[in-house]
Nucleic acid binder design. Structure first.
Length: 428
RNA sequence: GGAGAAAUGGCCGAGUGGUCGAAGGCACACCCCUGCUAAGGGUGCAUACGGGCAAAACCUGUAUCGAGGGUUCGAAUCCCUCUUUCUCCGCCA
């Protein structure tokens, strides 16, 4: 959520910055709503002040044993007026809130301006894609003999669900363990385990609601149709970041660094026909997530650091990748700056997203009311960052494709061997 | 699932219809006193959103005692619904 003061002071400047990310801000509508709000609020507060003063007088009169009926007669009709005024105010305020909640974050000045992913800027490439002297298979064909099973996944749950068994399942688990251990032991993150089902208000905090409900899975308690709205998390960013909701953090406790391995559930409405083969795009996938709650002064340093943490995983796995800066038009709703890590997939002969690291500035903090106390004792909004470190399913894809051998076997990356019982290959 | 109790400021805790945004204590900040040891005194110390105002200081209004509704001129206090916590019983991995 943007600072409403920013909008009150200079709607046009905000609109100009949002235009860069392809969002059209209706400044005139805002100005109109704001005028209405001010009028309604002043009116309501005046009536409340009148009522409060009269009630005090009544109290005093009664204590002295005087007759309070003249005062009561004077404000006889106040109640109805006040009720109407309060309703009018609430109505406008609700409109403003909903409008505010649907505006995306402002891009940071350092973000390249552009329309879509073709305008993203490559920052660096690390590692050299291996050259194969045999026909390269994609992960579906590489993994099938060892337990990568889409057919059974579809039987159980439909398209975009996968069953892993045997060596592939273990490789998948090993990747998650390896990532989690690296972030906790080498990067200073606290390991977390959090709910996978969250209340709807939590999703307002991180920005999935009110605009992106169609990407989420909504769940219901058995037999409880009137129960609270709850959703499966689409990323553990949601649960990790919201742990600091409604709290005031001591300055010397910043930054808070949290990591978790969790499943992610995405309905991906609107992505039909994209990446239908294989496990690139699934309704359920695992991810190791990093979240930092940062002091505003250091959040952009923290972003660079976090990208480095994600890169460490790829480096240790010896997977070639590149880092790109997303342009204004390609960034997510809550982000003020985002780096994507893209891993080399030989079968697709291209780099594909495997991590996304964003600084959200105070955008989520304002929605969550997450603050710290500054030196002068004032409460200030924290900055929030999140990054994949990494998407486990896609990392599995990358390992299968990059480590495949001519005989159909798969070499196990060196760092994963301790997690795989010391073996150095699958099959062969 | 059944029965009962509870939820107040950073923390503890008083407050059952009328100047209560809330006593008192702790913690914290500053000042004074004291030349010495976890001593004494004073002051300050919730948040959000408005208006004066373009902004700071300042003045001022409104809301907030788990959440939402209701009764009332007036609600922390009475009523209803919900949430959470605790105790006991049952069930369960």
């Amino acid at each position: 959520m943007l600072d409403i003061q920013l909008l009150r002071n200079d709607v046009d400047a905000v609109a100009a910055r949002l235009a860069g990310r392809g969002y059209t801000l209706d400044g005139a509508a805002f100005t109109r709503l704001e005028a209405e709000r001010k009028q309604a609020q002043v009116r309501m507060q005046e009536l409340q002040a009148t009522r409060n003063a009269a009630s005090k007088q009544i109290g005093e009169a009664k204590r002295k044993g005087e007759d309070a009926s003249p005062i009561m007669a004077r404000i006889a009709t106040l109640g109805d007026e006040l009720k109407a005024a309060e309703q009018a105010y609430e109505e406008v305020q609700k409109q403003i809130d909903l409008w505010l909640l649907s505006i995306p974050n402002l891009p940071h000045e350092s973000v390249p301006v552009g329309r879509d992913e073709t305008d993203n800027v490559e920052v660096r490439r690390v590692g050299v894609p291996r050259s194969f002297d045999f026909p390269v298979k994609d992960h579906v064909d590489v993994g099938a003999p060892y337990g990568l099973d889409f057919e059974t996944g579809a039987k159980l749950s439909g398209a975009r669900f996968t069953v892993l068994r045997g060596d592939i399942a273990r490789l998948h688990r090993s990747l998650a363990q390896f990532m989690l251990n690296t972030h906790t032991e080498e990067h200073g993150y606290t390991e977390m385990y959090t709910p996978y089902i969250v209340n709807d208000n939590i999703l307002y905090g991180t920005g999935q609601l009110p605009k992106f409900a169609e990407d989420m899975f909504k769940v219901q308690k058995g037999g409880d149709e009137a129960g609270p709205d709850q959703y499966l998390i689409s990323t553990s960013e949601i649960s990790l970041t919201n742990t600091v909701r409604d709290s005031i953090i001591k300055t010397d406790e910043l930054p808070l660094k949290m990591t978790a391995h969790s499943p992610c559930f995405r309905s991906e409405a609107g992505s039909y026909g994209r990446d239908t083969r294989g496990m690139i795009r699934q309704h359920q996938f695992d991810k190791v997530e990093m979240v930092q709650i940062s002091h505003p002064d250091t959040s952009f340093d923290a972003l660079e650091e976090m990208v480095g943490h994600a890169e460490t995983i790829l480096k240790k796995l010896e997977l070639p990748y590149r880092v790109i800066t997303l342009c204004t038009g390609d960034m997510g709703f809550s982000a003020t700056k985002t780096y994507d890590l893209e891993v080399w997939l030989p079968a697709q002969n291209t780099y594909r997203e495997i991590s996304s690291c964003s600084n959200c500035g105070d955008f989520q903090a304002r929605r969550m009311m997450a603050r710290y106390k500054d030196e002068s004792g004032k409460n200030q909004l924290v900055h929030t960052l999140n990054g994949s470190g990494l998407a486990v399913g896609r990392t599995l894809v990358a390992v299968l494709e990059n480590y495949q051998n001519a005989d159909g076997s798969i070499t196990i990356p060196t760092v994963l061997r301790p997690y795989m019982g010391g073996r150095d290959r699958i099959g062969g």
